[in-house]
Every structure is written in C-alpha cells, then in structure tokens.
Simulated assay, not measured.
Amino acid sequence: MHTIFEAIIIGIVEGLTEFLPVSSTGHMILAQSLMNTQNDEVMKTFDFVIQLGAIMAVVIIYWNRILSLFGLVKRKSQSMTGKKLNLLHILIGILPAGVIGLSVNHFVDDHLFNAVTVIVGLVLGGILMIIAEKKKGQPSTTVMDDLTYRQAFFIGLWQLVSIWPGFSRSGSTIAGGMLSGVSRAASADFTFIMAIPIMFGASGIYFLKNYHALSSTDLPFFVVGFLVAFVVALLAVVSFIKFVQKMQLTYFAYYRFVVAALFALYLLLS
C-alpha cells in the first residue's frame, strides 16, 4: 500500500525536475529508493501519470503555440524566413522514440528501473552534455520555427537514449539538437512541445498495461501525486524553461555527477 506522503514527495521531485536536464525519472527512482518505496506495477504506472501532471504545465505555457499547430489560432512566425513549426515536425521528432520505446519498454521496466542504472545514466548523460557544449558551433537554427525536418528527426533520435533512466529526455534532446546545429533555446522549446504527445502516449500505454494491478484504494495516491506534480511544475515552469534555454549544459552535467557520486556512496554504505 503506497502512502499519500510518498505521493507528495515524489510529486514535488517530479514537478521540480521535469523541466531541467537532470532526469525527472531518475530523481523519482532515487527518491523512491531513499524512502524504500515498493517498486511494483502501481508505482511504475504512478511515475508516468505524475509526469503527465507536470507536462500539463507545459500545455498551459505553450497553449497558443499548440493551437497554432492545428491552425486554430494565427501567430506571427519568429523565423526570419517566415517559416513556422508544424505538426509534421512533431511527428518526425516523436517517431523514433515511439517505435523503439514500444519495443523495449518491457526490458526497461524489468531491468533498468533501479538506482544503479540511474547512477550510470546520470554520469553518461552528463558526459553527453559536456560534449554537446564543447562540440557545438555557430547554430544554423536559432529559433524553433526555423527547425528543419532533418533536425527534428535527429533530435528525435537522440531522445532514444533517454529510454535509459537517468539520461534525461530534455538533456538528451537539447544536447542532440545542439550537435545538429540547433541553438540551445530552440532545442529546449522543441523538446518541451515534443514531450506533450510522448507523455500522453506513455501514460496511456502504462495505464492500459497495468490497470489490472490498480484498485480503488490507489486513486487518492494517484490524484495527490498528479496534482502536486502539476502545481509544483506550474510554479516552476516559466523560470525553469528560461533557465534551461540560457544556461550551459555543462553546469547541469556537474550537478548530475555530484548526485551520482553521493548516491553511489549511499548505496555502498547502506
């Protein structure tokens, strides 16, 4: 039986880390390890459902941009050439993770949702970010509207490594975008918009796969976690998105190394 206290703590962790390239999934797994939370089907489904709560904050912030993708509102392009981001960019970006993710999700659930793999992911993801900062040149694409279909596809490919818990979806895609000639700010914007259909899809899949393991007694646990993640993310999202757009990934990499080292020490001593 999972507690409301666990739901609140994990919801706060999710809301604070979803928009930073530090791996919200990895931080939730580490938090659950510290609290000795049972890593069962209910908890795995819970992790995805509360991520959806945090993503709802992105829906609110990017609401006009999302509506413009469907032609429901008109907006002025930020592109110097008058181009606009469209639904095909999003589809191309989510396709690699959608196809590969479905085929390996059982393996990830059974073997990678643990503190040791998160530590490895934090370190390797941090190394990727440092490489992206050192190898980046003058970006050919400075705003999201100028994103090419090829760049959208490569960002989607980089998202595949975030299937490993601890790598970070935003960290992988922002780093991948920078290596593909996209500015840090444009990569971050595309990452956050691309996360909306991915998280809706992942939450739906996990719920359908594991709904038989859920009961009515789990409802308060899910509702509290979802609401806490949504509220915390909504309070943090504006400043955090601007922070990620401007701050070098190298600093986030150093943070990841410190967290990985501290938790590795904790595991050795426990």
Rank of each mutant, 00 (worst) to 15 (best):
Thr141Gly: 07
Ala253Ile: 15
Leu52Gln: 10
Arg150Met: 04
Val237Met: 09
Lys135Ser: 15
Phe243Gln: 07
Phe48Glu: 13
Thr148Gly: 09
Ala213Asp: 09
Arg65Phe: 09
Phe153Pro: 04
Val161Pro: 09
Ala57His: 01
Trp63Gly: 07
Phe5Cys: 06
Ile155His: 00
Tyr251Ala: 10
Leu249Glu: 04
Leu30Gln: 04
Lys83Trp: 01
Thr141Asp: 06
Thr142Ile: 14
Ala185Glu: 05
Thr45Asp: 03
Ile94His: 08
Lys74Cys: 08
Lys134Pro: 11
Val143Trp: 01
Arg169Phe: 02
Val123Met: 11
Val232Ala: 11
His212Tyr: 15
Thr17Ser: 02
Ser180Glu: 04
Lys242Gly: 05
Phe222Gln: 14
Leu112Val: 05
Ile193Thr: 07
Leu124Trp: 08
Arg256His: 06
Thr25Glu: 10
Ala233Pro: 00
Tyr206Leu: 09
Met194Phe: 07
Met129Thr: 02
Met199Arg: 04
Ile29Tyr: 10
Phe230His: 12
Gly53Asn: 08
Gly125Asn: 05
Thr142Pro: 14
Ile50Pro: 14
Phe190Ile: 00
Ile196Asp: 07
Tyr149Pro: 12
Arg256Pro: 02
Glu41Asn: 14
Asn105Ala: 13
Leu265Asp: 06
Gly181Arg: 05
Gly137Ala: 01
Gly225Leu: 04
Val104His: 12
Ile90Gly: 05
Ile10Trp: 13
His212Val: 03
Lys74Ile: 01
Val228Asp: 13
Asn114Ile: 01
Leu268Arg: 11
Leu227Cys: 11
Gly171Gln: 07
His106Met: 12
Ala7Lys: 13
Glu6Gly: 00
Thr141Ala: 02
Glu18Ile: 00
Ser77Ala: 08
His27Ser: 02
Ala54Phe: 08
Ser24Leu: 06
Asp47Met: 10
Ser216His: 14
Val22Asp: 05
Arg75Glu: 10
Leu214Phe: 08
Leu128Pro: 03
Phe154Tyr: 06
Pro165Ser: 02
Thr45Phe: 11
Ala253Phe: 10
Lys242Val: 01
Gly82Pro: 04
Ser168Gln: 06
Ile100Arg: 15
Met199Tyr: 09
Lys76Gly: 08
Ser187Thr: 04
Tyr206Gly: 07
Leu16Ala: 09
Ser239Ile: 12
Ala202Thr: 11
Val22Cys: 04
Tyr254Pro: 01
Ile174Asn: 00
Leu208Gln: 11
Glu18Tyr: 05
Gly11Lys: 14
Asn86Ile: 08
Phe192Arg: 11
Ile90Asn: 03
Val237Ala: 07
Phe257Lys: 00
Asn86Phe: 03
Lys84Pro: 03
Ile163Arg: 13
Ile90Met: 06
Glu14Thr: 01
Lys135Leu: 15
Asp110Pro: 13
Ile29Ser: 05
Gly121Trp: 12
Phe226Thr: 12
Gly204Thr: 00
Leu160Met: 09
Asn114Arg: 05
Arg169Thr: 02
Ala97Ser: 13
Ile241Phe: 02
